[in-house]
């Protein structure tokens, strides 16, 4: 360890040296590569969530969900209707304090359009135990194209804080095997 009283050696008092300039150039190029990756991957990979949001009045959406439930209801599970719509159809799910309505029954490998909206507050749609998260915003209908590729029972957990009963807000999705 040198004494601090000895003057440091090197080029410290001069403008940027060669190493600094080389580093800045390399870093800049690397940055441009990283920056280009995202738009490139957006078009090439097609992985960004491509859901589309529309304005909708909560009461109208609730009516639509009720019609959907009437049309395709196949049973009941502890008072909550279980709904099975044919593959390719539009599904309507309503988040409200503090439940997910109704229970959806899907077929593995089939493609659906899932509509999500809320009656009252901001809720969060989180599929458990697989990790998929979407915000359920009142006044907006969020339409997602989904293709379930694993069969089983899944829980919908609310992950956007929605008041005193937030932790009780658990829904259910059943995916039947092919």
């Amino acid at each position: 360890m040198h004494s601090g009283l000895v003057a440091p050696k090197g080029i410290w008092w001069k403008p940027a040296g060669r190493q600094e300039k080389v580093w800045i150039t390399v870093a800049f190029i690397w940055c441009m590569v990283l920056f280009a990756m995202m738009p490139f991957w957006h078009f090439k990979g097609g992985q960004n969530p491509a859901g589309i949001r529309h304005r909708v009045e909560p009461a109208k959406y609730q009516e639509r969900v009720n019609r959907f439930v009437q049309e395709y209801k196949v049973g009941e599970d502890t008072g909550m209707p279980v709904v099975q719509a044919p593959p390719g159809s539009e599904l309507y799910l309503l988040g409200r304090m503090w439940a997910w309505y109704p229970i959806l029954k899907l077929k593995e490998g089939a493609t659906y359009t899932l509509h999500l909206s809320s009656l009252d507050l901001n809720h969060g749609f989180s599929l458990f135990p697989v990790n998929i998260n979407f915000q359920i915003v009142p006044g907006y209908d969020y339409a997602l194209k989904i293709t379930p590729n694993i069969a089983g029972d899944f829980r919908i957990v609310c992950n956007e804080f929605c008041g005193i009963g937030h932790h009780l807000m658990v829904g259910k999705v059943i995916v039947d095997p092919k």
Binding site: I24, A27, C31, L34, M38, F134
Partner: peptide, 28 residues
């Protein structure tokens, strides 16, 4: 912070690219 609210793919891609851009000066 709002990628999961359904802003549409284009808005999502632009904000995503802008976010990655911040990694540059931070990396520097």
């Amino acid at each position: 912070h709002m990628f999961t609210t359904g802003m549409g793919a284009m808005a999502t891609a632009i904000f995503s690219a802008a976010t990655m851009l911040i990694a540059i000066p931070t990396g520097v």
